[in-house]
Design a protein around this nucleic acid. Structure first.
Lengths: 210, 210
DNA sequence: TGTACATCAGTGAACGCGCGTTCACTGATGTAC
DNA sequence: TGTACATCAGTGAACGCGCGTTCACTGATGTAC
């Protein structure tokens, strides 16, 4: 992800705190993730924490922003790799979904969880700007997929009547739902499986059974 | 839901505590839902709370069990109503999904959230028996839908190659994902919308475009 | 090259508050004889 | 019908602990002249 070489000592500590916080938040929730446990694991004192983050809410914001940045980078990378292989927007999208499923299947202990989903179920803990960030994130996911669906419909008119915004949202829904399945059953394969089902749906909508 | 008339005074208080806890847990997470706020709203003292629940973990268990019971009752009811209208298992399922979407769309302020999903993102807070209950719940959802899909395939062989367990799980995934969309964007309609997309997928799989 | 100052990345001690849990106790209602 | 007892549904006070936050301070590194 991040090249440690290019980070100053302070930035490295900050990244370490975010790593520790991210893992804990996705397993216990934000409120139960104490500053105390983070600094114990990071090997600094409590005041050291407050050098990096104004308060606990600032940690939540940092965590969310980093997650969204990494997420966007992954999507861009996968779309670029998928589209490099062929011209047709539909086949590019299908390859993208396959690549996404493969990446998720290769995570050694499964996807750790979606920060946005976690925050949604605890949104009253956070300041308004954080709630707005989560909403913007979901809308940007929609937009990215929607643009692709628009290109696809130009060449492949859908076989059924379907709302393209909802169809774009469905990827987020299936991903978040797949993560919950994987977490609840402790079986990482469910997440890529659900992504591949979404891929089947896309095929059926734009190509029909073949 | 529950007929208040048939409940003793103690059971009414317990139900009230669960109502308050349910709402709070889905907005702030379990850890941030304090016993103190529940008893303040319910109008009893802290010791009164511990008359109804052994400890806080017992509240979590009670909340989950009640949610799963209500959930099962709703599914049974909707399936019964759907199948009363016609014989074909596929059309019954499609009607069921439509009824489900309608029920969800009619909730005045949207679906409050899925306790199982919430618990999954905080599972380290709970004792093992609670984590097992959530896993069992997901498996029972799968089983209920899977049985229906088996009946459907007898009469309507699927048009594409598809894993029926994964297809059954997809309803849970789309529901949980739809709830997260609805919560993040504060737009209740996204949940029924996603259910209806799942319905479109089921149609395509078993009937093809028509 | 040496000195003065600024910034970085923290330390250490103290704070008040809210939390979950325990304990001994109690009035109202229900049941047995 | 009256009395004794049991159960129900709580009360009230106290507890210790962990939490987030603040404050004054500090050694190491970087920069200007």
């Amino acid at each position: 992800m991040v090249n440690v070489q290019t980070l100053t000592k302070g930035e490295q500590t900050r990244e370490r705190l975010l790593d520790l916080a991210g893992e804990a938040v996705l397993q216990k929730g934000f409120a139960s993730t104490s500053i105390e446990e983070l600094i114990a694991a990071a090997g600094i004192t409590k005041s050291g924490f407050f050098y990096h983050f104004r308060d606990k809410n600032d940690l939540a914001r940092g965590l969310l922003k980093r997650y969204l940045d990494e997420d966007q980078a992954l999507f861009q990378d996968l779309f670029a790799r998928a589209d490099a292989l062929n011209d047709d927007p539909l086949h590019g999208f299908l390859v993208f979904l396959k690549l996404l499923a493969d990446v998720l299947a290769d995570l050694p202990s499964g996807h750790p969880g979606c920060i946005v989903a976690s925050y949604c179920y605890q949104d009253q803990l956070f300041s308004r700007d954080i709630r707005e960030l989560t909403a913007e994130a979901v809308l940007s996911w929609r937009q990215r997929i929607r643009m692709r669906l628009d290109k696809i419909t130009e060449r492949h008119p859908p076989k059924i009547d379907v709302d393209l915004d909802a169809l774009a949202d469905m990827l987020s829904a299936v991903a978040d739902g797949g993560i919950i399945l994987s977490k609840a059953l402790a079986q990482p394969r469910h997440l890529p499986e659900q992504i591949m089902l979404y891929r089947s749906f896309i095929r059926l909508v734009f190509l029909g059974p073949s």
